[in-house]
Nucleic acid binder design. Sequence first.
DNA 1: TTGTTATTTAATAATAATTATCAAAAAGGA
DNA 2: TCCTTTTTGATAATTATTATTAAATAACAA
Lengths: 131, 131
Amino acid sequence: MRITNQREIILEELKRLKTHPTADELYEVVKKRLPRISIATVYRNLERLSEAGIIHKLEYGGRQKRFDGDVRPHSHVFCIRCGRISDVDTVDGLDVREMVLDSKGFQIKEGSLQFQGVCPVCQKEKQLNVN
Amino acid sequence: MRITNQREIILEELKRLKTHPTADELYEVVKKRLPRISIATVYRNLERLSEAGIIHKLEYGGRQKRFDGDVRPHSHVFCIRCGRISDVDTVDGLDVREMVLDSKGFQIKEGSLQFQGVCPVCQKEKQLNVN
DNA sequence: TTGTTATTTAATAATAATTATCAAAAAGGA
DNA sequence: TCCTTTTTGATAATTATTATTAAATAACAA
């Protein structure tokens, strides 16, 4: 895979953000450095980079996919209201693959803990609506 | 929520299937019993039923959402090739929420183990492609 | 039962996110 | 330099899902 300017900056900005952005959120950020970049380039490169294992594509709740520049094994929560994703700190030295008794014939590559909940922003919104 | 014939049969068939079907897969099955049902009815009811907590909407890999008639806490694997989902048997008495050290302000509702891998069907296809 | 009202349905249009297409531009060599 | 391959930007196409709406159905009071 060739290291183009677009590719490099997409990766750089994704790694810098800790927000697990969607493709269009990342597009908005990258556009500040490359004003002429196309959204298709962002999609295309996020796909290539995740195929190569350089980044992770996250496909939890919400309609849009999100991306993570941190490929070390770790857990996520996603907000059932807005789809926002955050890292979650869990107990150390956890290899969830050891907890499998029967994988039903699947060849397991990766495993993680996954949580669903309500993010701080949506918690506040809920309170406001009640008043 | 009213118990209409369509709603009842959608739920019945989903509970019967252990394949975590997509909306259109379930539509094909339900159509055998209700030949005049609309795909929109299937989508609408799957949404209503999952809002009510009667079924679960699964949003792992792949572009399509999948549905599960079994709402008891359990783990899933999904196939990174085809998106197929299967239940995974894991060690008993596991409450993954106890493993959280810092939820980053999220109010956690549910947690589960999630695995990614290659399903038996895709494993075979891979072997064939090599020959 | 009949009439009234609210809910649900089927059909289909609309939307939103993503993917495909393709000519032009850029990147690597030979 | 020239040639070949890859990538890009612009935009069309696709796909899954959601919204709309008139008609059908259900619930229930009179």
